[in-house]
Design a protein around this nucleic acid. Structure first.
Lengths: 192, 192
DNA sequence: GACATGCTACCTACTAGTTGGTAGGTTCTC
DNA sequence: GAGAACCTACCAACTAGTAGGTAGCATGTC
């Protein structure tokens, strides 16, 4: 396995931190150039077009997210604790980092102006997250740990929507604590 | 009161439909120029800078939204029905229009790259909406029509977050019906 | 060991098109 | 004739993207 930090990784990392601030059209190759210390032409060497760059970026983000969810699945037996850990992750992101946001939640809003192949990746992330949450709610209900108000799938979609909306509210209010303030009662409500 | 359609109104209307597709950086004066049939320089006559245009646009959106909420307040006595009507409005938007989205929900995600005066307007919309919802939940609880799971304010914030998140999901899935599918169970859950 | 080949990563220099914005003149309307 | 509305004609900066070249390194081959 290749663990060394390559230039392409630097570019992806930088692009992610830029895209997370304001979406697809809020950053340029020139912005990356300044941070990474490479000419814009050289970025094109690694990622021929901007849509290539963002498509790879989102695909990588999806993989990381998927691995993260798998790890929650592995390390945390209780479904309610899994949801707690998931929200806790984002709460820590808001507390620690400068401009935290789910890459895909941000890009979802821009889907009508996104290159099609990027939109496909964003959609896939929503599906993956919803599927995982549905499983958590199913097991939680079966184990009597979570109280469903509808189907597991419907509750999962609602949970995801509330989480993403809480990110928007945190940004709108300019208050990192808002995310936790909105999502913590959510957990209390669904705990059996 | 001036009810005639002016050029400035045409520009604002067009800009709104453009901004709703992909946010602040997804449209240009050239785009408006093509639709409205006016030169870009003439748009600058009405709105000296892009941030002026969007600030006025959001301010106008806020007024309309505020008027809409006031009308719900006036015409619909029951708090639960008020929420139903609010969500129904957005559900109809998703069903009828090409690219529906709450202007402020979209811009909230882009706040780090937004001109400060625009961000202020976006923030004000979130406050206004949260305040109204808090009032609805308070009255609903007092009248025994709504079941609170926390404070009225906390429930209101969660309701707003879920609504905004449902808009993101609808876009991500490319499915207008997703909005209603997510928000309808929300209503059922809080109905006493 | 010398040398050709080919590849990766990067560069400079450039392009066409777009961006938001300005200067200054014309036309329409009250 | 004053002012609003609109125009043409600009501008500098920026956009994604291309062309063509170079340096370094790994091959294989004589």
């Amino acid at each position: 396995m290749n663990t060394q930090s390559t230039r392409a990784d630097d570019i992806l990392r930088c692009a992610r931190s830029l895209i997370v601030r304001g979406g697809y059209n809020s950053f340029s190759y020139a912005d990356i150039s300044k941070v990474v210390g490479i000419r814009t032409a050289s970025i094109h060497h690694h990622f021929p077009s901007k849509s290539d760059l963002v498509r790879v970026l989102v695909a990588q983000y999806r993989e990381e997210a998927s691995a993260g969810l798998a790890q929650l699945e592995q390390n945390i037996p209780d479904p309610l604790d899994q949801l707690r850990a998931y929200l806790g992750y984002w709460e820590r992101c808001f507390a620690d980092m400068a401009a935290p946001f789910c890459v895909c939640a941000l890009l979802a809003g821009e889907i009508p102006v996104l290159p099609e192949d990027v939109a496909v990746e964003v959609r896939a992330h929503f599906r993956r997250l919803a599927d995982w949450l549905t499983g958590v709610f199913q097991r939680g209900a079966a184990q009597g740990r979570l109280r469903l108000s509808g189907t597991a799938s419907a509750d999962a979609e609602m949970f995801m929507a509330t989480t993403h909306g809480a990110m928007l509210s945190a940004r709108a209010y300019g208050d990192a604590k808002a995310f936790g303030a909105i999502t913590r009662p959510l957990l209390e409500r669904i705990a059996a």
